[in-house]
Design a protein around this nucleic acid. Structure first.
Length: 518
RNA sequence: CGAGGCGUAGCGCAGGCUGGUAGCGCGUCAGCUUUGGGAGCUGAAAGUCGUGGGUUCAAAUCCCACCGCCUCGACCA
């Protein structure tokens, strides 16, 4: 292994820091080396590169299809929110106050070759760059909603938002990010609450069945709730370092925004009533979750459902004649695979050795690679290589590599591609679930709790009956927080039922999910 | 905002203390040999040294100011 690495001309730019060495650096290396995103010259803002954006586009499609299937339509609202409008819902405004970018002028002027803000162009009222759109949307909803016949109003928006974060990380937390925000209005509380649950389940479905990331569904504690919400539900995933990542939220807003924006409707009894609201969103953070859940020390690993390129075909040759024949075969195989609907890349670049191409496609997360050499032409076979396998305990790198490769008769390899992709999609979820469960514990004492998080940590299921101040205590002592108060069926069977709070000893009806978090 | 680091060729960096022709690796371009896990040789092109000022005969290098980004801490999806 060591001697092998000596043969590789690895420069700093080419290498990926192993996860075990520095997980944070590994993540940054993957983002960079898989060409997903770059830092920009604007603090905290990122440039999403084509490969990264293609993944986001696929995610968008999966989500958008589900939004449409559940009766929603898309619309677009302004980037700017008048300050007075944002301030209308007090709790909401206070929640976002510390991270708002504000536009105060509308003009520049050029003086002595220098361009600067024209002090005479000061806006009468500052405009807040939306950190989220509840206020400006509800301002409109007032005009759109008069009677119960106008309800439910089910609208989604795809947009960018800005939250002036102190500290940023590519995809996981950037000052500007892309997301979708659903904003719905309902005639009854029950219907609104149903909507909240429905959309959380849409998110969970995409996380698990599209991204291959298993998630825990639950409620946020009061302290972690969305500013202005009565209930915030979230899905929580576990990254490979054992930390939790909130991957999506769905909020029941009650009548808070309807009241502050004065949105009433005439119900079937002819009475005026405030409408009930929900909002829900996921962001480009999901791309970060995808990376941190599946990727390895060789680069990105993508589930077939989100891979911009499904299959890379590398022709192998020595002579011009072999080059012509293997490349022609690669094109022919590609054409057949495209018939099945796969995005196929034939890597016929000259001057690169096959090994270099293998590494590149692995780095970029392409699920399947097919190698076609002269021997395959003779035998009528294809060498099909999976990007990953589920690791067995104690398995060495060469063994892993061998287990990824498969030599199959040409027709069989092609015919089995849909099943193989399906297997990869499922195994990715399975692999993530195994990893998560290995780092999940049911814990009843603070001693065990401390030891668990001292030794790497993960998800801890503990009984809880503490206050907000008690939550702070746990945060200070262990750097952990309540990720969610799970729905009952999300708790492992061995951990169900009532018990005593791990901190206070008070009776607790059920366990909560505790972890360190991003 | 606090603490560190960085800014020099497309990318990654050295040089800076001790001022004096702008350097290395990768990539790019051309040619030949290679090609089943990161190719080799030969030749070539390519840089306002973050910005502004100062010291000096002379500044990437010393001084002052500014700008920007990254990493780590206090806030958050």
């Amino acid at each position: 292994m060591a001697s092998q690495q000596n043969n590789k001309p690895q420069t700093a730019a080419e290498s990926i820091t192993p996860r075990a060495t520095d997980y944070g650096q590994w993540y940054l290396d993957i983002v960079k080396r898989a060409e997903l995103a770059d830092h920009s010259s604007v603090r905290g803002c990122m440039v999403i590169k084509p490969h990264g954006y293609a993944i986001w586009e696929k995610l968008q499609r999966e989500l958008d299809d589900r939004f449409k299937a559940t009766g929603h339509v898309n619309a677009y609202f302004p980037l700017f929110i008048p300050l007075s409008l944002l301030a209308k819902e007090e709790e909401h405004a206070a929640g976002f106050a510390k991270e708002c970018a504000v536009v105060t002028h509308y003009r520049l002027k050029s003086m002595d070759g220098k361009v600067d803000v024209d002090p005479e162009s000061k806006l009468e009222e500052p405009l807040v760059v939306r950190p989220t759109s509840e206020t400006i949307i509800w301002e409109q909803y007032r005009n759109w909603i008069q009677s119960y016949r106008d309800l439910p109003l089910l609208i989604n928006q795809w947009a960018n938002v800005v939250r002036w974060e102190m500290r940023t990380r590519l995809f996981l937390r950037t000052a500007e990010f892309l997301w979708q925000e659903g904003h719905t209005a309902h005639a009854t509380e029950a219907e609104a609450r149903e909507e909240v649950a429905r959309m959380l389940e849409v998110y969970a479905d995409v996380a698990e069945n599209v991204m291959g990331v298993p998630v825990i569904r639950g409620h946020k504690t009061e302290g972690e709730r969305f500013a202005g919400a009565l209930d915030t539900q979230s899905i929580e995933g576990m990254m490979q370092d054992g930390k939790a990542l909130q991957m999506g939220t769905s909020h029941y807003l009650g009548q808070n925004f309807a009241k502050s924006a004065d949105v009433k409707f005439l119900n079937q009894n002819g009475q005026l009533e405030y409408v009930y609201a929900t909002s829900w969103g996921v962001s480009t953070r999901l791309v970060g979750a995808l990376i941190m859940t599946h990727s390895d020390d060789n680069g990105l690993i993508l589930p077939p459902k989100l891979a911009p390129i499904h299959i890379a075909i590398v022709p192998i040759y020595k002579t011009p004649d072999e080059q012509a024949r293997t490349t022609a075969e690669a094109q022919a195989v590609a054409a057949e695979l495209r018939q099945q609907g796969w995005a196929v890349k034939v890597d016929d670049r000259e001057g690169l050795q096959p090994g270099a191409k293998y590494y590149e496609w692995e780095r970029k997360g392409v699920p399947i690679r097919i190698e076609i050499g002269p021997r395959d032409l003779e035998k009528g076979s294809l060498c099909v290589v999976r990007r990953f396998v589920i690791e067995q305990p104690g398995e060495t790198e060469p063994e892993l590599r061998r287990r990824k490769k498969q030599f199959l008769p040409r027709a069989e390899a092609i015919a089995q591609m849909p099943a193989l992709m399906d297997t990869l999609q499922k195994e990715l979820l399975e692999r993530a679930r195994i990893r998560r469960d290995q780092r999940t514990r049911i814990i009843d004492t603070l001693e065990d709790y401390e030891a668990f998080f001292r030794e790497g940590g993960g998800f801890a299921w503990v009984h809880w009956a503490g206050t907000g101040a008690d939550e702070d205590t746990m945060a200070k002592r262990y750097e952990t927080s309540i990720r969610c108060i799970p729905f009952a069926d999300q708790i492992p069977e061995a951990g169900r039922g009532p018990g005593a709070c791990i901190l206070t000893g008070q009776p607790s009806p059920q366990r909560v999910l505790m972890a360190k978090a991003y």
